[in-house]
Amino acid sequence: MHTLLLSCRKAAALIERRSFAPLPAGLSVQLWMHTRICAGCKAFQHQSEVIDTLLEQRGNGVDAVSTAPLEQRIITAINDKN
């Protein structure tokens, strides 16, 4: 499967590169064509977006951690500073 000469390896890399800067028009079209035809790269693209969202949402949970000792350490450190 040629999909306009874009390999899966290159397509996967372009999916990430696109999140840093817009792709040149030609590459953008090639990538779009490739992901329309190639189920693996289409899934990769979805999953890359899911991972982006997960990475951004880290640490937003509500799991309780005991921070009292740390709070005390911080307050002591600040008291030392005046």
Partner: peptide, 10 residues
């Protein structure tokens, strides 16, 4: 502290 620590730990 709680929210900041959770953020940093992740």
């Amino acid at each position: 502290t709680g929210d900041l620590l959770r953020y940093a730990k992740s």
